[in-house]
């Protein structure tokens, strides 16, 4: 299966270069520090309602800034670098379908994203150990991580599409970051429009609210469906763009 071969190579490439390890280290340091801050904050008498995990899994601007940065950096070279270096030509002239190329690369990016988040489970276990028995809602924790995976997978699909559109990894990263920032800022726009279909649409697209639902332990299938649709659209567009040269 060509997609599995491509995914394996891309995943190894993340860990064969200083880039992957640097990103992993910085990610864990910042996430560890922010988790510590949230625990400290929520321990204050005048702390807002909620749990540190709710803040940690999407409740702050820091989460979004970091998500955008990580996704843009993770996906920028996937196809743009292949195009820039010329290896895309040998890949597309090999007996491999464009869909296998895009799926393989996307899968590798998702697995690397999972590898980034996986060690943060230690923070949760630490919080569970420190908290009073029975106060940690494991359902909310699982839903929060599902939300992070769902939003991350959607953002990575946007990144793969941006990487397919250009031969410059830096431009792909900027395009991806701008698209994701637009997505994040789309929800709050609903406060500036009067009630109506547009307001409803913006509400449905509000990724901040979606992730807050997940962090509260609420798994809404509409959110998953929306994310799935965006993933399918972006990957299909990326496949279509790769196949463009083959059209007369």
């Amino acid at each position: 299966m060509a997609w599995a071969t491509i995914a394996r190579r891309e995943l190894l490439a993340y860990f064969r270069t200083p880039f992957g390890w640097t990103l992993l280290t910085v990610f864990l340091l910042v996430q560890g520090y922010s988790f510590f801050l949230f625990v400290e904050l929520m321990a204050q008498p005048l702390a807002p309602h909620g749990t540190p995990l709710r803040l940690f899994l999407g409740g702050t601007l820091l989460y979004w800034l970091f998500l955008i940065m990580v996704v843009a950096l993770t996906t920028m070279r996937l196809l743009a670098e292949e195009r820039r270096s010329g290896t895309l030509e040998t890949l597309l002239t090999a007996p491999v379908r464009p869909i296998a190329i895009v799926l393989g690369k996307y899968l590798a990016a998702v697995l690397f994203y999972v590898a980034l988040w996986l060690p943060t489970a230690v923070y949760v276990l630490l919080a569970a150990w420190l908290a009073e028995r029975g106060t940690l809602d494991w359902g909310s924790v699982a839903a929060g991580y599902l939300g992070t995976l769902s939003v991350g997978a959607t953002a990575l699909a946007v990144g793969v599409l941006c990487s397919a559109l250009t031969a410059q990894p830096l431009i792909a990263a900027l395009l991806c970051a701008a698209s994701l920032a637009l997505w994040v800022l789309l929800g709050p726009l609903r406060f500036f429009v009067s009630d109506g279909p547009l307001a409803t649409l913006l509400e449905r697209l509000d990724v901040l609210a979606q992730l807050d639902d997940f962090a509260r332990g609420l798994v809404d299938s509409r959110h998953l469906l929306l994310h799935g649709s965006v993933i399918v659209f972006c990957l299909t567009a990326a496949v279509g763009h790769l196949g463009l040269r083959r059209r007369p």
């Binding site: 030509e89 002239t93 083959r246």
Partner: peptide, 9 residues
């Protein structure tokens, strides 16, 4: 490139 399928005729 056309022969190898990178470009279409």
């Amino acid at each position: 490139r056309v022969i190898c399928g990178y470009l279409s005729p």
